[in-house]
């Protein structure tokens, strides 16, 4: 069919709304719904999920025959290096302790940009570690273990 266009971004957006609505809706049904007088834990979220799915359908309908801007570049490198940084910190702050964990967190995030070189990354991470120690441990007195049990000999 010629002249057939669809705004892919909005199509994806509508599908995402429906998916989110479905996940929350499915779980709400599993809970006690109650009545309008005494609403159970599932009542309000079920209503919201229904509306959300409906809005998803509307967004998809609007996307048909519409020209949309392209999605543009996606920061894959950023996603794979920025997002794991806090996760890594969460996994290691107790085991490795505060200082090694924060050093590695900064180091991981450093490589999110292609412009960073290894020496620079190590220097910045070291700087961040020293500053964090002074600001958060020394000045603010956060009760974190500096070096954790994984590194104890």
């Amino acid at each position: 069919m010629s002249g057939y266009t669809i705004d892919r971004v909005n199509l994806a957006c509508g599908l995402l709304f429906i998916a989110v609505g479905a996940v929350f809706g499915y779980q709400s049904v599993g809970m006690e719904l109650g009545t309008a007088l005494r609403m159970g834990p599932g009542y309000f979220p079920l209503v919201l999920s229904g509306v959300l799915m409906l809005l998803g359908v509307v967004v998809i309908l609007q996307s048909i025959r519409a020209e949309g801007e392209a999605l543009g570049a996606i920061a894959w490198r950023g996603i794979f290096l920025i997002l794991p940084a806090p996760i890594f910190f969460g996994l290691t702050v107790r085991g490795l302790g505060f200082l090694p964990a924060i050093f590695c967190t900064a180091l991981i995030a450093s490589f999110a940009s292609t412009r960073m070189n290894p020496l620079m990354a190590v220097l910045i991470s070291a700087g961040v570690t020293v500053f964090s120690y002074l600001a958060f441990i020394y000045a603010l007195g956060l009760p974190f273990r500096l070096v954790g049990p994984w590194l104890a000999f």
């Binding site: 920025i82 940084a85 910190f89 969460g90 924060i102 900064a106 995030a109 990354a121 964090s132």
Partner: peptide, 8 residues
């Protein structure tokens, strides 16, 4: 990296 460390 500085922002990520402090946010964490």
């Amino acid at each position: 990296p500085i922002i990520m460390a402090f946010c964490s």
